[in-house]
Every structure is written in structure tokens, then in C-alpha cells.
Amino acid sequence: MLELNGIRALHAVSATGSISSAAAVLHLTTSAVSQRLAKLEREVGQTLLERHSRGVLLTDAAKLLVDRADKILALVDQTEAELEGHRGAVVGEVSVAGFPTAARGLLTGTLTSLAARFPALSPRVSELEPDVSIPLVIRGDLDIAVVQDWFNVPLNLPPGLSRTELLDDVADIALPAAHPLAARTTVDLAELHSDRWISWTPGSGCYEWLLYTLRGYGIEPRIVHTAGEYATQLALVQAGFGIAVIPRLGRESIPEGVRVVPVQPLLSRHVYAVWRSGGDRRPAIRATVAALSRTARAATP
């Protein structure tokens, strides 16, 4: 008989592309995930994963099992939700993921709220970008994802997901203190047409959004430096190497020598929580979404 632990492990590997990433999502050690996969291979009597230099590839047998697992785990999740809803208690585990600034600006407060109200609940938090977290929610390997899209580039959610709006997060422009516009109360985006830009890493949604947005206002951006962390971006701004878009949610301390100025037109992103439709029959998911909403209302990004 196939055990659900092994199926969930294979599911997570399929969604994330590696055993180590699957371990992070499942809050297990890499060794524990490998052991579950090895046991599953013994149970099915076939090889499920092929190792290569960039991670692992699923065999045909594994792909078949993952396809069936979607239905199996969906039924298990539905049954657990109905049982938990019938009991009415906010207990057990609930897994939540958020992109980095949401993890810092929303999830910590949400954990605090849940701990105070529901001590029998065991939330587990991961820091994941939407392109990783949304497939995990669809597959049932993650309960809730906090995701974002920008005002002019909406995120198309796949069918089968429910959502609730959390907040609109405004972004400002970070300028070196010596910049000619650093003393302004606001700056027009068109005034930055000749500046050098510091952006997110190429290929990320935010990097593509910045290119799309600036070109939409007639600016061909000169992106000279890229960094995934805002602290690194701000350090580059502080050193005078360019300017950057810095959202307010989860914003770190602004270093000396950097001025953060509001920009016109307003740049903002929508932040919301998503979960599998019907999953909110579980009191744990309802309680966590409510806690996210409370934390978002209290936030002042």
C-alpha cells in the first residue's frame, strides 16, 4: 500500500524541482525526504527519480504517480477539511508561504496573532516567490500563499483557487542623497529618464515589471546593477551607483545617504492570499486568512 507521506514528498519534488527545495516546503530535512522517496520507490517497485547535475528528473512512472496523486491528495485534503470543519476546532498544522517582504512585513505578525488566539494551531512559514508558491497550493503541498501583482500587470490565477485582498503596497524611489531630486517631496517618473537603475534579478517578475512600466512611460531603462535583496539595492543606491524602486511593505531601515521619495504616477502592487477553493472549510485556514487580514490592516507600508 502506498503511504501518503511518500506521495506528498514526490509531489513536492515535482513542484519545486529538487529534493532540497521539497524538504524546505515540507519542513523536513533533505535526508527525511530522500528516505520517504526511497520507501515509495520500494513500494511501487520502480525508479521514480533520475539524478542529474541540476537536480532530479521524474521518470515516466513518477509522472504517472504525480498525476494520480493530484486526485488522491485533493480527496484527502477535502476529507480532512470536512472532518476539521465538523469538529470546529482551530488545531493541527497550517502551512503559509509569502514573498520576501510579505514574509517580513506580514507573516511574523500573523504568527504572533495566531499564537495568542489559537495555541493548539501549528503554523509553518516559508519564504517563496509566487511562481513557486502558487503551484504548491494547487498541488496541495501548501495551504496558503501570500502573493503579489503590480497595478499594471495583473497576476492570472489558475482555476481552483480562492483569494482575499490584503493590502495595496505603495513603492517609492530611492535616490542617493546627492541626487538633484533627492530634496523633493515627490518626483515625476519622467524626470528619471536619464538615471541608472538598480533592479531585481533578471527573469524575476519584478524585473520584468520594471522594464514594462518604464517603457510604458517612454523611458528606456539603463539597468546597471541587479540584486534580489532590498538591503543590497539600498547599499548600491547609498554608494551612488543608481536609483531603485523600494516598496513600503516590510521595508528595512533606510541607510544614511539615501533619500526615499514618493513618485508620480503612483507605483503600487496588490498583495493577497490564495488557497485551494474549498480549503477554507478547514477552521485552521479560515483562522489564518483572518489573521493575515488583521495584520495587513494594521500594517502601514
Rank of each mutant, 00 (worst) to 15 (best):
L2S: 03
N5F: 01
R8A: 09
R8S: 00
S14P: 02
S14H: 07
A22Y: 01
A24N: 15
L26E: 11
H27W: 13
A38V: 07
K39H: 12
G45W: 03
L64F: 08
V66H: 00
I72P: 01
L75E: 15
A81W: 06
L83S: 04
E93V: 12
F99E: 12
A103C: 14
R104D: 15
T112W: 10
R124F: 11
E127Y: 07
L128A: 05
D131L: 07
D149W: 00
V153S: 13
N156Q: 15
P159N: 15
G160C: 00
S162I: 01
E165A: 14
L167G: 08
A177S: 09
P180A: 01
P180G: 09
A183D: 15
T186W: 14
G205W: 01
L214W: 01
L214M: 06
G216D: 11
G218K: 05
E220H: 04
P221H: 06
V224K: 00
Y230R: 14
Q233D: 04
A239L: 13
G242H: 00
G242N: 05
P247W: 03
L249A: 08
E256N: 00
V261M: 03
V274D: 02
R276H: 04
R281T: 11
R281Q: 07
I285C: 06
A290F: 02
A298H: 06
